[in-house]
Design a protein around this nucleic acid. Structure first.
Lengths: 253, 253
DNA sequence: CGGCCTGTTGATGCTTATCAATTCCTGTGG
DNA sequence: CCACAGGAATTGATAAGCATCAACAGGCCG
């Protein structure tokens, strides 16, 4: 199995670097600009590095199970995590997605209210809750950054509240495509779906079939093209934006 | 108008106290235990009091309009605020409710993404964004408390994401009633609706008619009684809890 | 007593879920 | 390299759930 071999190799490299000259790995960390360690100076970064532990998740692996006791937090170095809750009868709703720089795991909470699953192979920088609390007491700038990140997550959640509460299927899918396209939306731009149809459905509060139909509808009306399952081309960005409706200033992600 | 007279009187009392021996009012503040000033000691509380301004909103008044520039924050002393967003064509979704101790207004944000409206006569303790930032730099415990509160809001928002994305009308209404009843749910307990049917609809992502029908259905099946429009009695708490479904451990509010 | 706002109830239709069948990729093994 | 298996996605038919439109009832204030 090629993939697994690759992952193990990456893990070992990470582990070796982890034990090397402290802080050097942090300085080169691609996720640092957006992570809770962003505002730390070199000395503080050295200390912070001491309490961190590198961890690798393979695509599909679960970091935290809904209902588990949680006593740690982690920054995402690379990859992507999905936070999702499920009802006893199997309905699932994605509560959030986290990319590089994202922070998962809340202090003060005893039991996880949602599953945390890797949507792609993911590297984490993990901390124990106690270590993180102690560090934050000495370095309030971590709290400051964490507060900013939490507020940002709250914004995103509120944006989706509006979607799930009041938007039609067409509006939800159009908004999702704009989200996927990101800030550099342009005519004939070629973008990829970071999620499967099923995951898009769990995010939008719809079914796979409805997602598929809405994409088909957008394709038939010439707003987008679907050259492959995992890619889309935005032929008419203005039309897509108009379909998304719901307030002009709703760029999240 | 009786109500208005009462409000003006309260406002003037507040104003006089505001100018009196500093900190004394804060010490007696009923909202303090849950507010961002909860962890401040007496000296810090004195300083904090200096940058605060008392403000009173009448029921129905708007504190912040969606799209407005915001440069201040406020703690709710008494009353209740609604955070809601509306689409250009008039659909509204409530994004959150804040009671005493709640904090409204986000640092770093240039424009409000939602309206903030008083659902009842409301007293606020208001701060300029600059003052609050400066104070927080010197008293990181404010950041700490604010982070806790923001995480709590995020939890609530995620709980509602699940509701709006995956719950039926019956489940949403049952959950709402449990929310209203609070932690002391008991058989034949008598509770009041803090929201109108329309506000409940805006919170649940439903219409007024659907809310009314679901309440009627619960009444007909003997789970609740509706002696007045603004009150309900929970005859069968277990049935109500079962109807709310969606994970046993979802007490918010 | 009477208007008016809020809430309830009823009839109908649209939107989206559900169930089912088929097609299309993707990647695996021959 | 090609064929094939198996999951993912699409498409179709039908039904459930909720919205919408409309009429009516009940409080609450003047």
């Amino acid at each position: 199995m090629y993939l697994e071999g690759e992952i193990v190799a990456r893990h070992e490299v990470a582990f070796r670097l982890d034990r090397s000259e402290s802080g050097s790995r942090c300085a080169a960390c691609p996720a640092r600009a957006g992570a809770i360690c962003a505002k730390l100076d070199d000395a503080a970064l050295h200390d912070f590095h001491q309490i961190s532990r590198h961890k690798v998740l393979r695509k599909g692996q679960t970091l935290i199970w809904q209902g588990d006791a949680v006593s740690s937090g982690a920054t995402i170095v690379s990859g992507m995590l999905k936070l999702s809750a499920a009802t006893p009868d199997g309905r699932e709703q994605i509560l959030g997605l986290l990319g590089p720089g994202g922070f998962v795991g809340d202090r003060n909470r005893k039991r996880a209210r949602y599953d945390v699953v890797a949507l792609a192979d993911t590297e984490l920088c993990q901390f124990s809750g106690a270590d993180l609390s102690a560090f934050a007491r000495q370095h309030p700038e971590v709290l400051d950054t964490l507060l900013d990140k939490t507020i940002h997550e709250l914004d995103r959640a509120q944006h989706w509240l509006m979607m799930l509460g009041r938007a039609s299927a067409a509006e939800r899918v159009a908004t999702l495509l704009l989200d996927f396209a990101g800030p550099d939306l342009r005519a004939d731009g070629d973008y990829s779906f970071p999620l499967s149809r099923g995951q898009m459905a769990d995010l939008c509060g719809l079914t796979i079939e409805t997602i598929s139909r809405q994409l088909g509808s957008l394709k038939r009306s010439g707003v987008i093209q679907l050259p492959q399952r995992s890619r889309f081309i935005v032929s008419d960005p203005d039309a897509l934006t108009a379909l998304a409706g719901l307030s002009p200033a709703t760029a999240s992600h």
